[in-house]
């Protein structure tokens, strides 16, 4: 039995989605850790996959913090060179239409094994496209790996800008990193300043569609990564498919990932489950309220047509 299989534990599938196991991990490569959000899991997988030829293209979000017009506004890109992956590292707390370039990756980039990282809604969109590839001809079988990220809610760009510039008092172009953790939204500036606001104050700026989403852990992905449940600098990884497990095992064997049982660390899997339950409860309530008003139920619109 591999090292990974030994330390993997299973959580509540009703909250985390179907999975083979959960563990906590971080990259062992300094060049990756220097630029990534937490454990650098997503970046590591992408670099490894591209270098080993497991993927011939990955879709990720790249943001330019120094863009004079819209600093930190991410745009989706198709990356075929492993050296470019690190440019896309780090979380951007705003929408980035990754699915929009999926077809382009298969067409004008000629990719045949695409990996994509996305929020739970984007992962769902891709799985739907695989089931019913309207406007996505030849795309479904070219998707090699879907990496989901744990997501409570997302902010439209203008909302994020308001939070950073007006509530935290930092210009967007001075921001070095953004983070959500310990009940706060954190902003780190280029010259070492740290600002934060309570998470409650960010709620007005959330995207409207996020309020009817009950998917916290990207339940349809091949694997999910996120900081929740793991200590600083580590990431919680939920493995869902054999394909993803195999890839991760290879990476552990080659010493690219350092892994630990999630039971050994604080705050642990319990927090992930707690927050997943919170998201499901809160948004299910919103869905019920909307149904009462006669509004369409998300994901069930077709049944009413």
């Amino acid at each position: 039995m591999s090292e990974l299989k030994e330390i993997m534990v299973k959580g509540d599938e009703g909250l985390l989605g179907e999975h083979l196991g959960v563990f906590t991990a971080r990259s062992t490569e300094r060049r990756i850790l220097r630029v990534t959000q937490d454990g650098g899991i997503v970046s590591s997988i992408m670099v490894y996959g591209l270098e080993e030829g497991k993927f011939d293209g990955v879709i990720a979000a790249v943001a330019d913090p120094d863009d004079p017009e819209e600093p930190w506004k991410p745009r989706p890109v198709v990356i075929t060179d492993p050296d470019e992956v690190l440019e896309a590292a780090g979380t951007k707390y705003t929408y980035c239409p990754n699915v929009s370039v999926l077809k382009e990756a298969v067409r004008s980039h000629g990719c045949e094994r695409v990996a994509m990282v996305g929020t739970p809604c984007q992962v769902r969109a891709v799985r739907k496209a695989q089931l019913l590839p309207v406007g996505m001809r030849h795309v479904p079988d070219k998707i090699e790996l879907l990496i989901g990220i744990i997501c409570m809610e997302n902010f439209p760009y203008e909302g994020l800008k308001t939070m950073v510039e007006q509530l935290c008092g930092v210009w967007m172009r001075e921001v070095a990193k953004m983070d959500i953790g310990k009940g706060k939204f954190w902003v780190y500036t280029d010259d070492g300043e740290v600002k934060s606001i309570p998470i409650d104050e960010t709620h007005p700026f959330e995207g409207e569609p996020c309020h009817v989403c009950t998917d916290y852990c990207a339940e349809l992905s091949d694997l999910t990564a996120g900081s929740v449940g793991s200590p600083d600098g580590w990431s919680t990884v939920i493995v869902r498919t054999e394909k993803a497990l195999e890839l991760l095992e290879e990476m552990v064997e080659q010493g690219l990932l350092e892994v630990k049982s999630i039971e050994e660390v604080k705050p642990g899997l319990g927090l992930v489950e707690k927050l997943a339950q919170a998201k499901k409860n809160k948004n299910q309530k919103e869905i019920e309220e909307r149904k009462e008003l006669g509004l369409p139920e998300p994901g069930k619109v077709h049944e009413q047509l």
């Binding site: 011939d56 293209g57 198709v78 075929t80 382009e104 004008s108 980039h109 000629g110 990719c111």
Partner: peptide, 12 residues
């Protein structure tokens, strides 16, 4: 509307 990538060119 779009050019093709270098890798697509090789593949073609």
């Amino acid at each position: 509307a779009e050019n093709i990538s270098e890798s697509a060119r090789k593949r073609l």
